[in-house]
């Protein structure tokens, strides 16, 4: 059978609508997104679709991105801060193919940034959207396995249990040892899991000018933080929230203020630290190179 090319598609592939999802699905997701933005931090259920990749690889994030993409958008995808990892490369390629949009590795040029595990070091702007891939959206899940009960706890603002987890951390480790997926209180109402981003990135979520959207594909939940919303990390009065610090600097660009990855170099105990945000690190090396040349 001969296939005819669809007039609405900007790509050569005739079997997809713009950005893979059909229009009804995108409308359904946009409705969930609107509700999520209206109630910051609240987990909105949505009819998550099967995507052509396994759960845990960002099926939630990719559906959110597909629903908000316009033909003029420029997409950046990062995985653990890096633009060049398998997950990031293949999601960029996926949207180039199904939406025909521009992609970039530069945080500056992107209008939408889809991320797994990191928030870019560079401050995002009002005209940018940050889309998170979320594995487990429910911050109370590990202490309360019943979904009916956690929903009720959210509805009645019964968040004491979250502090039980932090208490347990201090009792066992002497400090709050939760280093990622560190729970936050959004707009003084809902307690939210910021997805497995390191707690280093939590302060960036507070009053961020960009819109932040969270998609959990397997768990079928969407939530959001509107621009300039207050986001507070939970803590105790006598054990305040603090972020990770490193003794060294990035071995490639010399940065001391960014989130550093530890890289094992050999089996002799050799190691180095470098920026997890590859775009940030690259730009710093570029400007350093320029100033050397000049």
């Amino acid at each position: 059978m001969k296939q005819q090319s669809s007039p609405t598609s900007r790509t050569d592939s005739p079997s997809y609508g713009f950005a893979y999802l059909n229009e009804q699905t995108k409308r359904m997701i946009r409705r969930a997104l609107l509700k999520a933005v209206a109630v910051p931090g609240y987990q909105v259920p949505f009819a998550s679709r099967e995507m052509p990749m396994p759960y845990g690889w960002g099926t939630g994030g990719i559906q959110v991105t597909a629903s908000i993409l316009t033909p003029d958008d420029t997409l950046k995808v990062i995985d653990q801060g890096a633009d060049d990892t398998t997950n990031a490369v293949s999601i960029r390629k996926f949207f180039r193919k199904t939406a025909g949009i521009q992609t970039t590795e530069s945080t500056d040029e992107a209008s939408i940034v889809q991320t797994r595990h990191r928030i870019p070091e560079q401050t995002l702007r009002e005209d940018q959207i940050l889309v998170y891939q979320v594995p487990i959206p429910e911050p109370l899940r590990f202490l309360e396995p019943r979904e009916t009960e956690t929903r009720k706890m959210h509805a009645l603002e019964e968040y004491g249990l979250m502090h039980v987890k932090l208490y347990e951390d201090i009792a066992r480790h002497g400090n709050i040892a939760t280093t990622y997926a560190y729970p936050v209180h959004v707009h003084g109402r809902y307690v939210m899991d910021p997805s497995p981003t390191p707690k280093f990135d939590n302060p960036k979520m507070d009053k961020m000018p960009a819109l932040q959207l969270f998609g959990a594909g397997r768990e079928k939940r969407i939530y959001a933080i509107p621009p300039y919303t207050k986001v507070r990390s939970l803590d105790f009065d006598d054990h305040p929230f603090e972020v990770q610090k490193w003794d060294g600097a990035c071995a490639l660009c010399g940065e001391t203020e960014s989130f550093l990855d530890e890289v094992i170099l050999d089996d002799q105990g050799g190691r180095m630290f470098c920026c997890s945000d590859s775009d940030h690190c690259g730009k710093r090396r570029e400007t350093a190179g320029d100033s050397h040349a000049a």
Partner: peptide
């Protein structure tokens, strides 16, 4: 009981549920 957390956290849970946010006092 909440079997996955320590005795201290078990006793502290009701305190924290009622708004206690000072670790040393709870302990």
């Amino acid at each position: 009981l909440r079997m996955s957390v320590s005795a201290g956290a078990n006793i502290g849970e009701r305190l924290m549920a009622n708004g206690a946010r000072h670790y040393s006092n709870i302990r």
